[in-house]
Design a protein around this nucleic acid. Sequence first.
DNA 1: TTGACGGCCATACCCGGGGTATGTAACTTC
DNA 2: GAAGTTACATACCCCGGGTATGGCCGTCAA
Lengths: 200, 200
Amino acid sequence: MARRSQAERSDATTGQLTTAARRLFGTEGYATTSIDAVAAAAGVTKGAAYHHFKGKADLFRAVFVREQEEVAAELERVALAAPDSWTALRHGVRAFLERCTDPAFRQIVLLDGPAVLGWDGVREIEYDHILRVLTMGMRAAAADGRLADGDLPIRAQMIFGALCEAGMLLARSGDPAAALLAVEAEAEDLLSAFALAQTR
Amino acid sequence: MARRSQAERSDATTGQLTTAARRLFGTEGYATTSIDAVAAAAGVTKGAAYHHFKGKADLFRAVFVREQEEVAAELERVALAAPDSWTALRHGVRAFLERCTDPAFRQIVLLDGPAVLGWDGVREIEYDHILRVLTMGMRAAAADGRLADGDLPIRAQMIFGALCEAGMLLARSGDPAAALLAVEAEAEDLLSAFALAQTR
DNA sequence: TTGACGGCCATACCCGGGGTATGTAACTTC
DNA sequence: GAAGTTACATACCCCGGGTATGGCCGTCAA
């Protein structure tokens, strides 16, 4: 192996570890995957893992954060490409639901995340990524007069919960394409809940 | 101890075990509570636990099911006491949110449940309890012309996801009473998403 | 250039806890 | 009341998370 700097070695190892962890956590689940298995899949030993991460939960956290970053980036990209704030929301919803097609994403973000990191833990991370993008999108729609006033953070959080459940639902469906349409229709109705015409 | 039948002994022991497990799982979380600790709190040993349950997950499942049964029963009671289908829905929502005030309920049903039993596992159980009651309530509201047509199971599932997130949210709030009002307002708007006046 | 220092990682080990095998006392059945 | 079954307790296995220690190599100052 050619001469490598310490930083290069570190980055390479952490990258191998998080990639392997993402694969194993996503397929086998958090509880049933061992640190040894992750390290072996990454081509290193447990010592390397415990050098870069405080423990198993910390490794999982790194995977979880990277997952959130990628989804948030894609959602932001989709939103920016949309002609107006309302279609930005709709396209974002569709992008999130399609992301839920990935079993590893569901296992890590939707199933194991809350149990491993606690609700405060996932909340803290999501608020800087997925929830941030969603809240911004809803704020823009509200500014455009497409959404009524109200508590936007609470509203975004509840919409997010509904979308997560919808993502699990269509993943279980025998006909994902048809389910996607049905779910999207319901999701649009949900967002329409806050359409301006509605009065309390 | 007086002479007891086998069935009485069994019922007493399983009751002690599930009660102790409910307390420990609810306070310490599933991963950090040991079978030994549960058995000790129940006044028996690990052998008794493994005699009545196939394993740790099975014990958790029993606790989870009982929790669902209790909530479903209360929701049904609240719904039946309501004058019409719409207020039945609203009172049910309130009852569920208040149940989320219990940290043990949140830990067991909302956080650990999906990770331990898998999504299919919780789905199967919830569909016979909370989701069943919610779907029935929405079906009644639809029959009364308070909800538009659509895919009711999907709709109920998504509403349920939103309510779970709302429950976690108001539990974290510094002022639960005020948060309850805000969350209830948003939840009503969500249900209004499917009000008959809405057209797609 | 070199030598000391520190970061990177492997090896060896501890130990808590899920799961199992076996023994024993109490209940049930005939 | 003897045989068989149920309801546990006890002792044990072993996987796996976490830690301690040592060695290799890049880094940096003199």
